[in-house]
Design a protein around this nucleic acid. Structure first.
Lengths: 324, 324
DNA sequence: AAATCGAGGGACAACGTTGTCTCGCAGTAG
DNA sequence: CTACTGCGAGACAACGTTGTCCCTCGATTT
């Protein structure tokens, strides 16, 4: 015959009890006699019965799916990956599973995936917003890395302005006056905030700045041009790790890695093994992920306070490249 | 009133058609008059109706959930993260979503998560097996990075033996005779295979070997001990990136990074920026992920051939640390 | 010994959707 | 003018599970 998934009815028949009793046992209700429960468990084992999640969800439509969605820029990027892992750990502690997606800063993908997750009835969403306006979400959402545009919700961000300002002040304290800025996509508030911190620390002395760099290669080219140009800076500030990598490559290519200072925003692996070791403003992506997950689960549990902005402090890790 | 999710019935009422017609429109059946379809679409929009996935799955129980599971060692590890991203891209191209989990080499977690995903009715699973015996899975599974124990299935692996042997032969060709081995958990076939490649290339000349190193710190200590001990090797081979990092730190700490050669299995970010740049046997995790996903989708589509072992070639990237 | 009580367990309906069947109606042929 | 065809659309049942209600049966009380 056609083999079909065993149902509660099948279990009930082999255990010699009623359908409802099986349901009780499976759901752990206490009002079942021990011997019956044992018979049911045995039948479940022998048939390899698994409850049909769809049917269960249908009947008690209040039930959580115990699944959340996590939409980040790129799950293979170290920052996103660390956030993802931290969220997963928090979720696991609560028996919740995680659906993931990489957005690559594409608003269309953001909208599609958010809608798909909504349809799948995830209980909530952790989102690194692309910056386009989003429709008001149909489930709890916590934003991470940057605030949403055109919506409100709990947001977990790094202290971008003060972190960048601290880095630049560190350079100033070591005697630098001409400090170049290498920045990514200005549509993202992180890039804007870090540039703002840079400007605040320098005031009128703000040096050459290049924005909207797409990748390390673009940053490399921009850094080389900046260092060869007139009024060549004595120090560089890079607003994210891919910019920092480009800057490192540029300095090595020019052979000036020991005479031009460099501080990067966001730590990266092996920064301490380079020559010179790279001074960075470290974010704490694990803590950001944990915090975002904790906030999301509070919302899922029903907390209904005003949107919160949670700022995770950055740490200046002086390794030698910024103190030249 | 209690606000509840709009149902097809609500849509039917506002559109002034029957329940079934709404079902037809939502499912894109062609036999609906255009004006009715338009009315239904308008009603769907205005009510923000979303089909209830559970109910849908219940009725047509053949339907795919269009979700797969991906269980890797640690989604924040660069190798796993790259595999994950590649799988996600393949899945997206097919309109499939991805549930993730990090196993941390824990067989309990592997079993729990695989069972949970099965219950959620994922269409398939991509798994980096922990090495414990697993029960025969209830859905298509493709193994990645290493083959399963006590089960059979499509498996996507790197050419571990020949890759490691090639690296060691590279060292031999540059005059090295005493070559130390730094290896991870021998329960994993990757560690065993890479050690086997090392042994094959060296034959009777196999040098000092340390196994079961847990992390870079352990590898650092082992490398220092090895280099200070009698018959100190002139070259090191590290069987995975965390071992390589430990070896790099050890060489730097001893100040011998320019006199002891080093080749690591698995590339890592910025290996080319270190001093000296690190020669590695690069895996291709993106291709492994894409290949695994492609194989999984073939299985999901019903392909039922014998289990395949797909070997993804490694590439020796000579950067300077292995040619001292 | 009769009445009461409580707990275990079963019958039944309902969740939101889709497959099947049927019906109505317009268009066409006989 | 009737009969037939075909297509669009509605009525109804069914998917597997859980909530509600009720019944049974043994134990306790008076």
């Amino acid at each position: 015959m056609a083999e079909h998934r065993p149902t509660m009815n099948d279990v009930a028949r082999t255990a010699g009890v009623s359908l409802k009793t099986v349901s009780r046992v499976v759901n752990g209700e206490p009002t079942v006699a021990p011997d019956l429960a044992a018979r049911v468990h045995a039948a479940v084992e022998s048939l390899d019965y698994r409850p049909h999640l769809g049917a269960s969800m249908l009947r008690r439509n209040d039930k959580r799916t115990r699944t959340i969605g996590v939409l980040l820029d790129d799950v293979s990027h170290p920052f996103s990956a660390a956030v993802h892992r931290a969220v997963e750990d928090e979720a696991r502690a609560r028996g919740v599973h995680v659906l993931t997606g990489s957005l690559d800063h594409d608003p269309v993908r953001e909208r599609d995936l958010a809608a798909a997750f909504a349809e799948r009835q995830t209980d909530g969403l952790i989102l690194a917003p692309t910056g386009s306006n989003l429709e008001s979400p149909t489930m709890p959402v916590v934003y991470v890395d940057r605030p949403p545009t055109g919506a409100a919700g709990d947001t977990v961000v790094s202290t971008n302005v003060s972190g960048a300002a601290g880095a630049v002040r560190h350079l100033i304290a070591h005697g630098h006056r001409r400090i170049g800025f290498l920045g990514g996509d200005q549509h993202l508030s992180t890039a804007r905030d870090r540039h703002l911190g840079y400007q605040r620390a320098l005031g009128r002395r703000a040096g050459p700045a290049v924005h909207d760099l797409r990748d390390p290669t673009a940053a490399l080219a921009a850094a080389v041009a900046m260092l060869r140009g007139p009024g060549s800076p004595t120090a560089l500030f890079a607003d994210q790790s891919s910019m920092t990598i480009g800057a490192v490559r540029a300095l090595h290519r020019l052979g000036r890695q020991h005479e031009v200072a460099l501080i990067g925003f966001d730590d990266f692996p092996f920064a301490d093994l380079l020559d010179p070791p790279i001074t960075v403003v470290a974010q704490d992506p694990s803590r950001m992920g944990r915090t975002a997950a904790a906030a999301l689960f509070e919302r899922i549990e029903g907390y209904d306070g005003a949107p919160r902005e949670i700022r995770i402090p950055t740490t200046l890790i002086a390794r030698g490249s910024g103190e030249l």
